[in-house]
Structures are given as structure tokens and as C-alpha cells.
Write a protein that binds this DNA or RNA. Structure first.
Lengths: 110, 110
DNA sequence: TATATTTATTCTACAAAATAGAAAAAATAA
DNA sequence: TTATTTTTTCTATTTTGTAGAATAAATATA
């Protein structure tokens, strides 16, 4: 029974990739999660998730060129596949649909 | 390190409880998930999650009165705690905030 | 009152996702 | 060639997600 829904952290990582565009890589994603949610995550957690997402065909990756900065290993850059984008959109649409049916809860947002 | 974020299925179950109001119980939640998302879930999965959510203080439960219908065991009725409601709202707000930063993706919704 | 039927929950076991921390690799600088 | 930096990879564990069978509790009916 292949699971079709995204895990919570998987979805978050996909969103960060969409957000970071051409410069989405492990450490950068880790930082962006902190920035966007206040949540601290271990770098290993991010990479494990990226690797799972790639296996499932939701993202793809390639090695970036070395930059002129200090030094350090080359980045592995990630982008969403069409499938990954679709999964993200569907996940959002489902939730929006449910939220609109719970206006009581929505009111508390404002 | 206590985890603060909701799992994907945990969030879905919380949403169903908010949606079903006074009549949120295991089997009903299971049916509502099917109705709202098209996704089929085993009843055991729902109850396991409900039980975890209760342990974590996100929901509380009480036994319902027997109804006049055919027969069958009494329902265990679930409601969100204030903490559960807060978690749900925060989870939504975080995502909405991120989505608004990715207009490219939003456009594909329509 | 026994037995059948119905509606639900609870139990047991396993797979997948989330998480952390340390180790290793690959780049530049000195 | 050694040190420093940036980043990925590896290893291990906990928490979530999942299913299916067993059990329980209610009403109906013979």
C-alpha cells in the first residue's frame, strides 16, 4: 500500500525548496526552517528527509559549482519535480477545503 | 526534546474533530477522513492516534450516552482542548505564511 | 433468558517518518 | 601539507502511521 500523503516534515522541506528556489540545499533549508517556523532541526534530519523525497520522486538534485567563498564542500542543490509540486498543491488544497468548513476556528486567527 | 509540531495524520484527526463537533468519535472520524480526503484509513490507525493525542493533551474524551438506534457499543466522544485548538491554528498560520511567500505555486491552484 | 446482530473500541505488531549526533568528504587558505 | 570551513553522509533511536484481529457493549428477537 504505497502511501500518497506527505509527512509533516516532508511537506515543510518541500516548501523550503519552493521558497529558496535556485539555492535550496541541506544546510540552507535547515536555516530557512528555523527562520520560517522558529523550529530547530538537526542537519541530519533534513538530509535524511531530502534523500527520502528524492527516492520517492518528489525532488531531484545536482551538485552545485564551487563558489568563490571561503571553502567547504560543494552544495547539493534540490529542486521540486512536477510530481513534488503537485503533491504540495494538493496537500494545501485539501487543508484549505477543510479549514473553510471550520469558520469558528478561522475566526480565532485574526 | 519534546516535539511540538503535529504529525501529518495527527493534524488531520484534529481537524476532523473540529469539523464533527459534538459527534466526533473513532469510526465517525474514520468516515469523515474518507469523505474529506478520499483517503482510506484503518480504524485502528485512527484510535491509536486519538489515544496519542489524548496523552499529549491535545484532545479529551468521554463516553457518550447510548442512542436509540439499533444497538452497539457506546461512542467515546472526543473534543479539542484549548491546547489542541492552539496547535491547529498555529500549524495553519505557519503554512499560510509560507504559502504567501510562494506566489508562483499559488497561481497553479486556480 | 439465551443468542444473534450491530456498532464501536481496544489490543498487538510492524513499517515508515522524524530526529540527533558524530564522522567523513571536499573545497580553499595559509 | 596542514588547517579551516562548509557541507554531506552515516548510524542509531524514538515517534508516528498503519493494519487487522479480537473484544466489548449495546439492542433485538426467538
Amino acid at each position: 500500500m504505497g502511501k500518497e500523503s506527505l509527512g509533516e516534515f516532508e511537506e515543510l522541506v518541500l516548501l523550503m525548496i519552493a521558497l529558496l528556489k535556485e539555492d535550496a540545499y541541506g544546510l540552507g533549508i535547515c536555516d530557512e526552517i528555523k527562520k520560517q517556523t522558529g523550529r530547530t532541526t538537526a542537519i541530519g534530519a533534513v538530509h535524511a528527509t531530502l534523500s527520502r523525497l528524492e527516492t520517492k520522486g518528489l525532488v531531484e538534485s545536482s551538485l552545485g559549482d564551487p563558489t568563490k567563498e571561503r571553502g567547504g564542500r560543494r552544495k547539493r542543490l534540490f529542486t521540486l519535480t512536477a510530481f513534488g509540486e503537485k503533491a504540495l498543491i494538493q496537500s494545501r488544497d485539501t487543508k484549505v477545503s477543510i479549514w473553510t468548513q471550520i469558520p469558528e476556528l478561522s475566526i480565532k486567527t485574526v
